[in-house]
Nucleic acid binder design. Structure first.
Lengths: 366, 366
DNA sequence: TTGAAAGCGCTAACAA
DNA sequence: TTGTTAGCGCTTTCAA
């Protein structure tokens, strides 16, 4: 226990440093802010820095923020941090931004518009310098317009907006579908079903369009009856949608491309319930390559999306806008890559062996 | 585009409201701060509130924070947000704290002490009101002492510290082990191995002690040769440790309790490599009940820990300390629960069928 | 190169 | 009940 100590020692302020150094606070400020402009005598600069570090001086970021209207913090708003694709995205963001001295404020919306509003207000009140949102749906257009009106730099990640006046870092969703269809076609599949994601998300919409384009490109039949549209990206919803498709059209297709891995796991579930085998009866290809996708049975063939890089790119886009808000918005497309595992095989091939997965992943991609 | 608009409209300030309402700023402050103390005439209060909302007034939290030395934000420091147990914890924290109007600043340390220091400095500079850390290892004692010295309210979550002068919300690790051993013993296992977690984490240490105590309590032999200690909580490390144990002592035990699910998946891997079957040759019980634990093959018997509640409890503890920093520290133990699935069976039972998991989970617990 | 002065937006004594 | 005054810790003109 420090002698004579009572309570926490008030952290050192700029003025404390100034007094000890026998200079004016503004001089200390100049030294510490590496303002390359008005230079300070090398000698005093050194002296001040020494005293500052001796006192363990840390600038009070609130005071600075109040003055400069910049806080060096950015908000990251996600629907649900428990969605397995989110953590790597957040991590990518946090790393890149952390390198530049920014702090990340994280907020969950739990898919609730009300909570989202509240979170946005909180971020605004906290004067974050910018915002990264992983929540975009079509319904967001109004919200985004508002943010734009208040000149808040915003970047979308994972999903884009209709309004392409907003920067976004997203996977190349069309190419995801193309890779999936190419893989299945190469295995000999000609009738391929699709569990589409919600069309109010760009991921859902673009993957579906990409799917149809990829079929058409190969002269394969595009049959709307073989497409079912899910409303949420969950296993249960995938099982429901694909279950219904199986009930209606089982036997009319030999493979399915699911708009994401959770939906693909739902397909597993539906197949199992229908007493069908994967990949024997139906090959399944997912999208995302979520953690442990290689550990399911059968191990899941899927399209790998580098989520860490998605996050990093989003951070990069935001940094650009923070430096120069006038720059035009742009979208970064991150390239996906096929990861072929055990859930896809030639049509009608014998039921897979009991083993959990092939010894090594076959990978191809751009 | 708003008419005559040039750039962003400066957000309304307290003074703007005051001027419009023809009162002094401090009156507005009083109205908006629900300071039950000095009351304001109902009429003016109503008028002020009306004007405030009309102007879309939002208090500037930096200015307020500068004045009050409270920011209504708390830092959450985790080693790695990609660790599957972390998201639900963070979510639990974020929810509970969000309800009280707090914002969560999230920081990853990536297991690096240097990064952790940096993150802490950043949080301090940002004047967070308190800190929740999910990173505690033995090596943290110095750091924690420091935080305590600067009177920063700190709560640990998931892992506790040796120093029990710090509040923590943790699973009842001893009881986790007890549940696992009870389950296996009931199935008829008498020789049980253990893949322990790192002893520099309380989870690793307490589960190991709990494991040994549970064996002893049942008169089962406690054989140090059947315990292997992992250094990191990863699948690969689990495979390595259990692989070595199998190489040395295969046949001398019929079950293994792994200190967490990732280690348990590593056991799967090691068994497969050794050409052994689970649960036919060896039953495996994990700990945590991570997402998709029911989807592996065989579906994983494990000890469920309510991570969301862990997060909520940690938030609760922090709120307590924020209200009254003088209160003594306390630990909250969150009760785990057995989830018996397909990876555990009677010893020597026939190899499990190929099916992925039993139709329903058997659950028992406190 | 350094100092003086003002003020970011808010709250909290104290006074009226 | 309301107004006055001062100041949280910092940056940033402007002047010397």
């Amino acid at each position: 226990m420090p002698l004579g100590g009572e309570g926490a020692p008030r952290p050192a302020t700029l003025r404390d440093v100034a007094e000890l150094a026998q200079v004016h606070p503004s001089t200390v400020s100049r030294v510490l802010n590496s303002a390359a402009r008005s230079r300070v005598t090398a000698a005093t600069a050194v002296r001040i820095r020494a005293i500052a570090s001796e006192l363990g001086y840390q600038p009070n970021l609130m005071a600075r923020g109040l003055r400069t209207r910049r806080t060096r913090s950015v908000g990251v708003i996600v629907t649900d941090i428990s969605n397995p694709v989110i953590p790597p995205i957040v991590r990518g963001i946090e790393r890149r931004l952390g390198d530049e001295g920014y702090t990340v404020l994280l907020a969950n919306t739990d898919h609730s518009a009300r909570r989202e509003r509240r979170q946005l207000e909180a971020m605004r009140a906290k004067l974050v310098d910018g915002l990264i949102m992983a929540t975009a749906t079509r319904e967001h257009d109004a919200l985004l317009a508002e943010l734009r009106a208040m000149a808040m730099p915003v970047v979308l990640v994972n999903r884009a907006a209709e309004d392409d006046g907003i920067s976004a870092a997203v996977p190349d969703d069309g190419f995801c579908a193309e890779l999936a269809v190419a893989h299945l076609a190469q295995l000999g599949h000609e009738r391929i079903a699709h569990v589409a994601g919600s069309p109010s998300t760009t991921t859902g919409l673009r993957r579906r369009r990409g799917f149809e384009a990829a079929l058409a490109r190969r002269g394969l039949r595009v049959d709307p009856e073989l497409v079912t549209t899910s409303e949420r990206y969950t296993l249960e919803e995938g099982a429901r949608c694909f279950g219904e498709l199986l009930a209606r059209r089982a036997g009319e297709f030999t493979a399915v491309f699911a708009a994401n891995d959770l939906l693909a796991l739902g397909c597993y579930e539906a197949l199992e319930r229908a007493g069908l085998d994967c990949p024997g009866s139906v090959s399944v290809v997912g999208c995302n390559d979520m953690p442990f996708a290689d550990r399911f049975t059968p191990s899941l063939s899927t399209i790998h999306i580098p989520h860490l890089e998605l996050g990093r790119s989003a951070a990069e886009l935001l940094l650009e806008r923070l430096e120069d808000p006038a720059q035009p918005a742009r979208q970064v497309l991150v390239a996906p890559r096929l990861v072929a595992r055990a859930s896809s095989a030639r049509p009608g091939s014998a039921a897979a062996a009991c083993g959990r997965r092939p010894t090594s992943d076959a990978r191809m991609g751009p």
